[in-house]
């Protein structure tokens, strides 16, 4: 019985962590390639949730499919935001130019998106009701929530796709080259500015898809980002700043720690466990779990 309980806690933690992982790799990609700390990442996730809701309501699209369908429009949105706003403050690939304003820009973007959504779509929480949100796969005494299981599987697939893209395609290699050494990359004929647009677009599309998956079981409201953004940053730093596999593992670790903390600490200290592990990792391995001293993707 005790063992079954432990397995349940581990399984729950992994399922929760799966979606954290997908949220975090977008952030890691953006940081790894562009060195931009995107405070608005959670807000793009929230917009992804709303778009999934819109798909579900207007075209009865299942949110699991809807989550995938958020990728193209959000890639375009990310690309446009990079072109129109970020490129002006990150130096657009020119490492010599000042990069200070990007923090203020992404923070401002976050505030504008949250408050505009509150004004336009109202603060009333919305929810997509799916049968699988309240059903479970029973593996003996262990229950796995169906919505979270599907979301976990999709998160795994998307993360694998990103990994293959980065390591097996020319475009992915060009992206990594731009991250490793923008100057050398540009000497090789790589358009670093375009690579930044690609990274930002992909990062935003991934977090929007994570939002879509989250929407299968989590209510949608303009301020939902606040519940996740800190965890995303912790996952990215835990895994090693800018490392995609690191961010994925970081997300899973956070889910696991949140769940297992409850075995020893009261509920009110759930996130305390996460931050204790975070501090321990930073103390013992300052570059993060998967980090190198140099930045990488």
């Amino acid at each position: 019985m005790v063992l079954a309980e432990l397995v349940q806690y581990v399984a729950t933690g992994l399922l929760v962590g799966g979606v954290y992982a997908l949220m975090s790799i977008g952030l890691a990609l953006i940081f790894g390639v562009m060195r931009v700390v995107n405070f608005a990442q959670g807000d793009f996730m929230m917009l992804g949730m709303y778009l999934t809701y819109f798909y579900a309501m207007s075209g009865s699209v299942d949110p699991l499919l809807g989550a995938i369908l958020t990728i193209p429009p959000f890639f375009a949105l990310g690309w446009a935001v990079h072109r129109g706003l970020l490129a002006r403050v990150t130096g657009g690939g020119d490492p010599q130019r000042q990069m200070d304003a990007q923090l203020i820009l992404t923070l401002g973007l976050s505030l504008v998106i949250t408050n505009a959504t509150t004004m336009i779509l109202s603060p009333t929480p919305l929810g997509i009701r799916t049968a699988y949100a309240t059903q479970a796969f029973a593996l003996g005494p262990v229950l796995l929530n169906q919505a979270r299981s599907y979301a976990f599987a999709m998160a795994l697939l998307l993360a694998a796709a990103v990994y293959v893209f980065l390591t097996r395609t020319d475009l992915g290699k060009a992206l990594r080259a731009s991250a490793d050494d923008p100057e050398a990359a540009s000497y090789q004929g790589i358009d670093v500015r375009a690579m930044h647009g690609l990274a930002f677009g992909t990062g935003i599309a991934l977090v929007a898809a994570a939002g879509g998956l989250l929407a299968t079981y989590y209510p949608i409201e303009p301020t939902v980002a606040g519940n996740f953004i800190v965890l995303m940053f912790v996952a990215v730093v835990l895994g090693g700043l800018g490392s995609i596999p690191g961010a994925f593992v970081g997300g899973l670790v956070i889910g696991l720690v949140q769940s297992l903390t409850l075995l020893v600490l009261p509920f009110q200290l759930q996130n305390t466990g996460v931050f204790i592990v975070f501090l321990l990792v930073l103390y013992l391995r300052p570059q993060g779990l998967f980090g190198r001293r140099a930045r990488t993707v």
Binding site: E5, V16, N145, G226, Q258, S259, F267, Q270, N271
Partner: peptide
């Protein structure tokens, strides 16, 4: 007797 600080990450443990 389980009390948490919002937001709650997951309700499984409580409902269990």
């Amino acid at each position: 007797d389980d009390v948490w600080t919002p937001p709650l990450a997951d309700a499984t443990a409580i409902v269990q």
